[in-house]
Design a binder for these strands. Structure first.
Lengths: 148, 148
DNA sequence: GGATGATAGTTTAATATTAAACCATTTACG
DNA sequence: CGTAAATGGTTTAATATTAAACTATCATCC
């Protein structure tokens, strides 16, 4: 890092962009997810229900991959959803290490009832940006996010 | 919402943009903060130290505002930092409701030692985007984030 | 000056979250 | 086969996080 000057132009651009990215994500998520409190759902619980709703039954490992969370966390969240009978676990006979996690009827109804409002929240919130700007934001985020 | 068609073009642009935004923020934060584990610091603890480092002593309410966290959370995080003698609380005589939270010498040394690496992580990570793209990302995020 | 209300911080109860150690099952391979 | 490695899930211990109820202090204003 001999050529790296702390506090350089490069740093400033990167830091400013990153800080704005962080705060934007936090406020948008906070705003669009506020309605979940009325159903006593956390963001992680909602994300799990949503994944099962769109993708069908998943094993916990795949849920974790989708939500970018650890296995231990998935155990907890799925456990809490199961307590409320919104999902159920079934052992897979062909490989008994796996559980298949699926929405129950109650869970299906709940997520189907909530999703429209959630999508509307996101669409309304994002409407501050033009469709072109939304696409550009997506492009930049994908480019940046896939650089892992 | 009579004019709102679920699954419309508008929804798709917004959802795609929002999902990319979420995943980007999660992966970038995860990558740039990984080094904190070596110091046994959580992201929240680091954020608190960083705020005190750049802004000087703050009361807990201002720390919460800065990190977008609740008062109860600040109590916990500052408490854990205090246990490790990285910060200290002092009652403000002019208004005894407030604490002034400040870095200790140890805390100062720690954050000063860690910051360069952290900034470098961010700068390196963001370098996938050109400086113009970083500025555009910042502009879009600010526009979107300030719409609360 | 004493009730009223606002404000800073804490506590409590519940869930989330991670890393690390662990258990159970399956797969690889000698 | 039978052991070793890999894999899915759980547990544990610690911290984070929130909402809601609470304490203490300060400000307002009759």
């Amino acid at each position: 890092m001999s050529t790296h000057h702390p506090g350089s132009q490069k740093d400033q651009h990167a830091l400013n962009a990153y800080i704005s990215l962080l705060r934007c994500t936090e406020t948008v998520t906070s705003d669009t997810c506020r309605h979940l409190a009325a159903e006593k759902l956390t963001v992680g619980q909602f994300g799990t229900l949503e994944a099962l709703y769109h993708l069908g039954p998943l094993c916990q490992r795949d849920i974790g991959k989708k939500l970018l969370k650890t296995g231990g966390n998935v155990t907890t969240v799925v456990g809490n959803l199961e307590k409320r009978a919104l999902v159920e676990r079934r052992r897979m006979p062909e490989d008994r290490r796996y559980y298949s996690v699926a929405l129950t009827e109650t869970g299906q109804e709940l997520i189907a009832r909530i999703m429209p409002r959630h999508i509307e929240n996101i669409t309304t919130r994002l409407a501050v940006l033009s469709l072109q700007e939304q696409d550009e934001l997506r492009r930049l985020c994908r480019k940046l996010g896939l650089a892992s």
